[in-house]
Nucleic acid binder design. Structure first.
Lengths: 225, 225
DNA sequence: GCTACAATTCTTGTATGGAAGATCTGCGGT
DNA sequence: ACCGCAGATCTTCCATACAAGAATTGTAGC
């Protein structure tokens, strides 16, 4: 969902707890199925129950926690169909984006994308997988910006968090060379102002997430519904 | 965002307040820019501040409220670019959906859609605009179901709430005849198993929201950012 | 050994009091 | 008349106590 719904500036305790818990969940320090309680987390962070409770509400709305009233709160297991449909949503939107970007020739889009890919190659050579992943995300967000729908990327980003949990389970195994090659194909199609080709390249690029998912389900069945 | 994140069954006060406030906001009883406070709402509903506060948090994450820490909470004004990009998102997804549905011939999709359109014609004849709107929504959700991505519709639904506020401002003016005709074109393309034609019909159908938006901005400029 | 049931102990939900900060008000100075 | 500053009065935020439901445990009875 589109958020940062409260004005920036102040830094409340609740917001800190939200960020900390989200990191723990995405990094799998808190595993799917783990039971947590307001008291536990409050004690662990040295704060009162109240801000923790509010953090739970926010994270539950983001699909990371499941609050069972009067019972307990658990780290939500990953829903395979949920991830697949998130991918469907992402593909739908990104295809539309890439067609737009490739359809407006004469822009500096190809140049910008080329620079990003060069940076990714550096990160890949340096084995800096963290930076590589950040650049990968930036590549896609940049496409959204070039298409004039940056807001749409926020949506994708919110839903991508579930896939990020999956990705974290297979860290380092990702073949960055292949991702770079696919990015190059996309950028090339943009340079040629060929929407059809760009669409094909984008679909192929995003299709890899499916194999990642099925593989991970086999390796960590307990983390999935 | 995909929610109902807390198990159904119990009916807490906070949930009741969420529903009541959401209705008030969508029905424009609470107008964009209106300032509300936890105490106000708590007194108005005869409950404590705590559940109201939690309701505020939920509604803020849904983009209906803006919490300004230590200052106030206001009913969020409608963002024209936000609505436009929501429309972009919706169009991207629904185009993909309709192509899928039209691409799998031999199903009973056309039959199901035809029945829905018939019901809409009844509602239109009876001037039951409320039922008509519900059936319109059902038409699109049914398409998502037929494509096997009902979850995706939930996403659209969550974002559609902003457009619903706009729609409420122009209630009754909607030309239902035209909407029915467009639905018929879509259903016909599905019956012919022609994805290209279905896509064109769907895009034309969704494009009408744009004129609705620009018109409403002119009529109620104070409600927009 | 097994079952029924009650008490204990968890959990989240609600109420209320006060703290911290931001805005508004009014008074005094120039 | 205008500006500055201090106090009153809002707001949301946080802490704490208690309430209510659900799960667990232990125990009595068979």
């Amino acid at each position: 969902m589109a958020n940062e719904t409260l004005e920036s500036g102040a830094e409340t305790i609740a917001m800190r707890v939200v960020g900390a818990l989200r990191d723990e969940i995405v990094s799998m320090a808190l595993k799917p199925g783990d039971v947590i309680s307001e008291s536990d987390i409050a004690a662990r962070y040295g704060v009162s129950r109240q801000p923790v409770r509010e953090a739970f509400i926010r994270l539950a709305q983001q699909g990371l926690l499941l609050i069972r009233p009067k019972r307990a709160t658990v780290v939500k297991k990953i829903s395979p169909t949920g991830v697949r449909q998130s991918r469907f949503i992402r593909e739908s939107i990104e295809v539309e984006i890439i067609r737009r970007v490739a359809g407006q020739p004469g822009s500096d889009a190809a140049q910008v994308l080329g620079d990003l890919i060069a940076e990714q190659e550096q990160a890949s050579s340096a084995n800096d997988s963290r930076r590589f992943h950040a650049l990968d995300e930036l590549f896609h967000r940049t496409l959204a910006r070039l298409a004039g729908v940056e807001y749409a990327w926020q949506l994708i980003d919110d839903h991508k968090i579930q896939l990020d949990r999956v990705r974290y389970l297979t860290l380092g195994v990702s073949s960055s060379q292949r991702a770079i090659a696919e990015h190059k194909q996309i950028a090339e199609a943009v340079a040629k102002a060929d929407p059809e080709l760009a669409e094909i390249a984008m679909r192929a690029h995003l299709a890899r997430a499916e194999t990642l998912l099925t593989q991970t389900i086999e390796d960590f069945p307990d983390f999935f519904e």
